[in-house]
Simulated assay, not measured.
Amino acid sequence: MDREYAQPLDVPELARFALMSPGHFSRSFRAAFGETPYSYLMTRRIERAKALLRLGDLSVTEVCFEVGCTSLGSFSSRFTELVGESPSAYRARAHDEGAAVPACIAKIHTRPIRAGRTSGGRAGTGQESRSETPPPPVA
Rank of each mutant, 00 (worst) to 15 (best):
R117D: 10
T125L: 09
V67T: 07
P8N: 05
F29A: 03
P135K: 08
A106H: 13
S71V: 04
A100H: 15
P137F: 04
A32I: 08
S119R: 10
R93L: 01
G121C: 01
L52P: 07
Q7S: 12
R111Y: 13
S76D: 05
A32Y: 10
G84F: 06
F25W: 06
V11F: 07
T80Q: 03
F29N: 05
R16E: 09
S76F: 05
S129F: 15
I105E: 09
G98D: 09
E62A: 12
P22M: 00
R3D: 11
A100L: 14
T36Y: 08
G116N: 03
E97S: 09
P135C: 06
L52A: 03
T36G: 08
A31T: 15
F33Q: 11
S86Y: 06
L19G: 06
F25A: 00
E47V: 02
S71F: 05
A49V: 04
F29T: 02
V101R: 08
F75Q: 04
G68H: 04
V67S: 03
R93F: 05
L58W: 07
T70E: 04
D2L: 15
R16T: 08
K107L: 12
C69W: 09
Q7Y: 11
Y90S: 01
S77P: 00
C104K: 11
K107W: 12
V63D: 01
R44M: 13
A89P: 09
P8R: 08
E35W: 09
D57C: 08
S131E: 10
Q127D: 12
R114I: 10
S76H: 05
C104F: 15
A6L: 06
S76L: 04
S39G: 11
F33H: 15
R16H: 12
A92P: 00
R44H: 14
R93M: 03
A99M: 08
Y40W: 14
A123V: 15
E35A: 10
S59Y: 07
A94H: 11
S131Q: 13
P22T: 02
I46R: 01
A92Y: 09
Y40P: 03
E47G: 10
V11S: 03
